[in-house]
Design a protein around this nucleic acid. Structure first.
Lengths: 229, 229, 229, 229
DNA sequence: GATGAATGAGAGTTCATTCAT
DNA sequence: GATGAATGAACTCTCATTCAT
């Protein structure tokens, strides 16, 4: 029933195919960079190696990316976006309980760290200590993640008729959550390759998180009429 | 008969002075490196700049240190040692309660992060992503810290007649503690310069930690009279 | 029988239009190159920029021009031709007096340098020091100009019944004239933008030239039986 | 009788020798650059070639010179200085007559162009069209030369009790003189290798110059006894 | 022990040119 | 004819490291 074949359409099929080819190429390059950055480190990887692996010339890389740093930043952005999506999906089916909220971390471990260890390595190791612009972007991405968590947490807390211990608590918890999962990935995946026990650890981590978070909440401020939810 | 001999002592005064001079020089170099690594980043700092700041020649740096990486590693070692000392001192006056144990983190924030922000920057940012040997050393240092915490925690838990939820719990908690303080330093000191609210955050963090840790403990299986706490 | 044939004429209208289109395109490209070469310098201008300004693709440039150097050379040729034309026109109304001959320089200043400062910049600055082929062409163009002047001068001298001091005088004067106007353009237009006083300078320059040239002439060749030399 | 051997002198002999070695090395590099720039052109010469010819490493060149441009600029400065010195010496023995003044150009031809054709090539060809900073320096050097000539000319004119036709005349003449000798070098040495006839040409050029300059002077208003010339 | 000039391999980046579409 | 993505050789410059003095 769709009449979107071609006749009169502004974008002819050929242009579309070119567009797709272009994106495929960009992805090939990004994938090659990702693999090498994760395996050898950002500094130790040079442009020629990326080009070789992607089976393009160095010039082509510079046609699509401003410079080596840009390659890392684009990679970080894509990874940051992916993490947010995973967290969002995890939160989608939640019932806004604190338990469900904390359980979202499992998705991060399973659907991100274990599924894409290279991306985790880039996000948590290779993008650290690489100069101002990269650090700036890292800060931005982590701020967004922290903010996401903070906002989600605030919604849960509000719905459940609870209140934070102090004005900073929500952000602090969000930051700590980020730190906890960062460390989990770094310690158990990047440093030690203990993928087997990660699932158990994830469960205990959730328990830890839940209790820790609860300790910074009080049942309610003026809770008598706070019977919302 | 020589006037300048040092009366039978094995180490003559002259040698001692030389020894002191040597250490002073090494420290000057390390301090210069620390300042520049923290301010400009490890990669962005070159040996000549360190030599200039330390008022020595490049050759002198290579007389005392194997290479640039060695400079960073020595710095990391000193910092790691200092952190361990601070934690040890914090634990020294403790009564082996979980509260006191968790409270040790305050010392880390006040006596380390706030007192030596440059060292914190090197430990938590500049030593990340700098190649295999540095990473290896970083892993070793963090493992030691994690182990310290784990051992301390196990002692507290045992003394208090409690038991961990699983075989991995102690290490997991230790790792999370490291992640939590790492993040606290990174988020609130390196990224944002919120030194003013850090103390409040430290208190809430302890509360978070305490609750989180407790959640992975059970009062003990056979310990009937372990009714403390 | 074909409807679109063009009544016996060898060149059909369609071909003519195509021809015109082609020339228009070539001119657009040359104009863009001229502007950028004059503004940013030959080396600092790259093909993509020229293509952008001309609103064509890089490929199109290479369809019409052999390479970047060819672009500069074609530009130089056009400019050289234009200068010759201006000088020729200036000489056309002359009465073959030395005064009139020297006055031709005014046209060069007004109708060339002031009217097309970009072209002057390319001829006197951007085409210098750009490699063998360009230099070769520059030499050829300047030789032609010098020759033009020499020939013109010889005609004037002969008609007026004078004779040059030496066999090299004519060429020397021609070369100096070229150098003088080159410098006038460089000093007063390219380096300093003193377009306002140029006209006064042009007059004085003519006076200078006239006297200088005269000093290398003797009143007559065959007069006393030519015992000069 | 000089007691400047060493005792107590702040600069020991060793430092002095090092200083000399350093300057020798700088000169070796500059000479190599000069030769290659003149022979192959500035753009066509790469740093490695200069290093090879100077028998040093590329790094050494960058130890003494900021970059390739700096090499050219330092060369231009040295050449500019040399030209000024030659002109100054030529003027030293002059009796402030216009004839003597114009005759100074002979020194430029013989003691500079013919003695150092490579330097002439750099000054008059290779330093043209090489980007903003080089052009800026070129302008500065030529301005100084022009100014020198202008000042000298003004002194001669004043002493001889003459006056310029207009306010711009002195500068104009100076500029034209520069243009004339520039062209002489370019036309007869760089383009054609007519070193044999240069001397004759130099004489005629002086005659040309003298007449041209005189044409822009008037015997002076109030100068009644200024009956010279 | 200290110096700092010299090294040179190596890296990122540019850009004129080509050619399949 | 026109396009513009792809090429890859070539270049400048950096900087950790060495070593003769």
């Amino acid at each position: 029933m769709e009449s979107m074949t071609s006749s009169g359409s502004e974008v002819p099929r050929r242009t579309l195919r070119k567009q797709r080819e272009k994106e495929r190429r960009i992805n090939t390059i990004l994938n090659s960079a990702e693999e090498l950055f994760a395996r050898k480190g950002y500094q130790q990887t040079n442009i020629d190696e990326i080009a070789d692996l992607a089976e393009v010339s160095t010039g082509t890389i510079y046609f699509y990316f401003k410079n080596k740093e840009d390659l890392l930043i684009k990679l970080m952005n894509a990874i940051g976006y992916q993490i947010r999506r995973i967290l969002g999906e995890g939160l989608a089916g939640s019932d806004f309980s604190l338990e469900d909220f904390c359980a979202v971390g499992t998705g991060f471990i399973k659907d991100f760290c274990l599924s894409y260890p290279g991306k985790a390595t880039i996000m948590f190791r290779e993008s650290v200590g690489q100069g101002d612009e990269v650090e700036e972007q890292r800060k931005r991405l982590f701020s967004v993640l922290t903010q996401d968590i903070k906002v989600g947490l605030e919604e849960v807390v509000q719905r459940r008729g609870m209140v934070f211990k102090s004005a900073h608590s929500a952000e602090l918890i969000a930051a700590l959550v980020v730190g906890i999962y960062n460390q989990l990935a770094y310690h158990y995946l990047i440093w030690q390759d203990q993928t087997d026990i990660i699932s158990d650890l994830a469960d205990e981590t959730i328990s830890f998180l839940l209790a820790g978070t609860s300790s910074l909440l009080t049942p309610c401020g003026d809770d008598i009429d706070g019977k919302d939810d």
